[in-house]
Design a protein around this nucleic acid. Structure first.
Ligand SMILES: [Mn+2]
Ligand SMILES: [Mn+2]
Ligand SMILES: [Zn+2]
Ligand SMILES: [Zn+2]
Lengths: 124, 124
DNA sequence: CTCTTATTGTAACGATGTTGCAATATTAAT
DNA sequence: ATTAATATTGCAACATCGTTACAATAAGAG
């Protein structure tokens, strides 16, 4: 029942932390850590999500990206969007809260906001 | 080169039109039209997207939903969100434009906004 | 009706993520 | 330090969703 500290957890968390507010796909993590099995990586990522220290976002082409939660120490609030630059390919966790107005009678449980475009680095 | 009118296109379009502003997954269309092959359905859907008469949205669990474009006759503008009710399971195309503020230097090409919650029908 | 070729069905493939299970490693207790 | 309990891992096999190759079929122009 009690969670254990392992090499894989440490290594995967380090990957995500190094990525900062940029997201990583499971296969990218896999290529950065060839010692660990694919399944282990998926399971560790899921356990991090359960612990609330990372969050997972679906991209518009059906692949998941994982982000280290940076500003979620106390409250866990994810009404922000994620931005993929179509030039450099990086996926960024954008801190700005998005305002969501649902019609009367609708209540929100969860959101997944994705924007594709060109980031400021790649804009010339 | 010239596109042709076929039974499959007609049937699939009818499915989507009957669904109104609710989205359908490919496998749902498949089950509604057992005469047509899975591959055909995917290909027809893609051709509709190319024609600009439907749009495709990724859900937060990695499955695509297809929507007949209702209010996109002239301009094709998709800065709206899609709402999945966790109770009835329906996925609705919400017409309201969402305001998106990107930081300076960022430009938007495309968006995919997904919200999960409870719809007004299921709210008691 | 005939011809061109867009469209379809079948089968096989690919990418991504999951599950079962035996082997291993972490942690706490002795 | 040794032992015991069990969380974690690796492997293999599976599941789902979507794509591709290619030969057969059928829409529609002439
Ligand atoms: Mn977060
Ligand atoms: Mn539309
Ligand atoms: Zn960029
Ligand atoms: Zn509902």
């Amino acid at each position: 029942m009690k969670k254990r500290q392992t090499k894989s957890k440490k290594a995967i968390l380090e990957c995500l932390q190094k990525a900062g507010n940029y997201g990583l796909r499971a296969d990218i993590i896999e290529s950065q850590l060839p010692n660990f099995d694919r399944v282990t990586i998926y399971r560790v990522l899921q356990s991090f999500i359960d612990d609330g220290i990372i969050h997972k976002v679906i991209s518009d082409n059906g692949k998941f990206y994982y982000f280290k939660c940076l500003k979620c120490e106390e409250v866990h609030y994810h009404h922000h969007y994620h931005f993929k630059c179509s030039i450099c390919g990086k996926v960024e966790c954008m801190e700005d809260e998005m305002e969501v107005k649902t019609p009367l009678g609708y209540s929100i449980e969860n959101v997944n906001f994705w924007i594709t475009g060109v980031c400021s680095n790649c804009k010339k």
